[in-house]
Amino acid sequence: MKLSKEKLNDALVLTVEGRLDTTQSDAFEKDIIQILDEGEQKIILDCSGLNYISSSGLRIFLIIQKKMMGIGGQFSICSLQPAIMEVFDMSGFSMIFSIHPDLETALKQ
């Protein structure tokens, strides 16, 4: 798992790459909480490089979502691979998150 961040316009774009399974999610959670503490208003999670996500990973997505909702900010996910999208669909998470096909669309939001 590799996480990188980049400020594009008013949005903080986080790019997550690789696998996000149970063993890696702790580190990911720490990184994310640190970023969230900075109080960004608009966060876009670019998942174009994300190959796998476990339920622990999904939980962190939920943490971001809840936190952003709590401060009135905006969180969207973009560029989900089909297999991941399927997980999102099956678990109903696609209903919870604001999901965009690509980063461009997400930025316009």
Partner: peptide
């Protein structure tokens, strides 16, 4: 039909 896991909302 789609629905979300328990414990979220």
């Amino acid at each position: 039909s789609k629905s979300i896991p328990l414990g979220l909302f």
